[in-house]
């Protein structure tokens, strides 16, 4: 496989085949937002430091600012727009786990992956995963309650 110049690629996003005109050096984040209109993943640091742009790639959380769009070919991408009434979304609403909401998509996606991959995650694993995301508004307690409420459902 090779891409030498701007060209059309096909991506599988939220269960739909979507095509996009990309440069090989275009980031998945920019293509999702600018071409596919999926603006739930947020640009904040574009350096992999904050997690606001987190999406799922084959079920695993990935910072879409650190992935080329062409790299995503053949993989299953899920963005926040692809979650519908996920338990984590309800939990974030119930627990007031966001204020400005800018980090929320990334946090929910990461939490969602965690709950699926490690449904019985202990505190150490939860911390390890969720330290990948920054929130500047909350003090993290509500986010902690939200993820615990979903994990405890799995545990019981």
């Amino acid at each position: 496989m090779k891409f030498l110049d701007t060209g059309t690629i096909e991506l599988l996003v939220n269960g739909e085949k979507r095509s996009a005109l990309v440069r090989p050096s275009d980031l998945l984040l920019d293509v999702l937002r600018d071409q596919l209109g999926l603006t739930g993943a947020k640009p904040s640091c574009k350096n992999g430091d904050c997690g606001a742009c987190t999406v799922l790639v084959d079920g695993w959380p990935v910072k879409s600012c650190l992935m080329l769009a062409v790299e995503a070919i053949g993989h299953e991408i899920i963005t926040i727009e692809g979650l519908q009434n996920a338990p984590l979304q309800q939990a974030f609403v119930d627990e007031f786990a966001f204020q400005c909401g800018y980090c929320t998509s990334g946090f929910i996606i990461n939490c969602h992956a965690l709950a699926r991959i490690h449904p019985k995650a202990d505190e150490a694993v939860i911390r390890e995963w969720l330290q990948s995301n920054l929130c500047r508004c909350t003090g993290y307690e509500e986010i902690s309650k939200a993820i615990h409420s979903v994990l405890s459902t799995h545990k019981s």
């Binding site: 496989m1 891409f3 440069r23 090989p24 062409v70």
Partner: peptide, 11 residues
């Protein structure tokens, strides 16, 4: 945003 182009190969 990478402010330049490159070629991408996946052998």
């Amino acid at each position: 945003m990478i402010p330049f182009d490159f070629e991408y190969y996946k052998p």
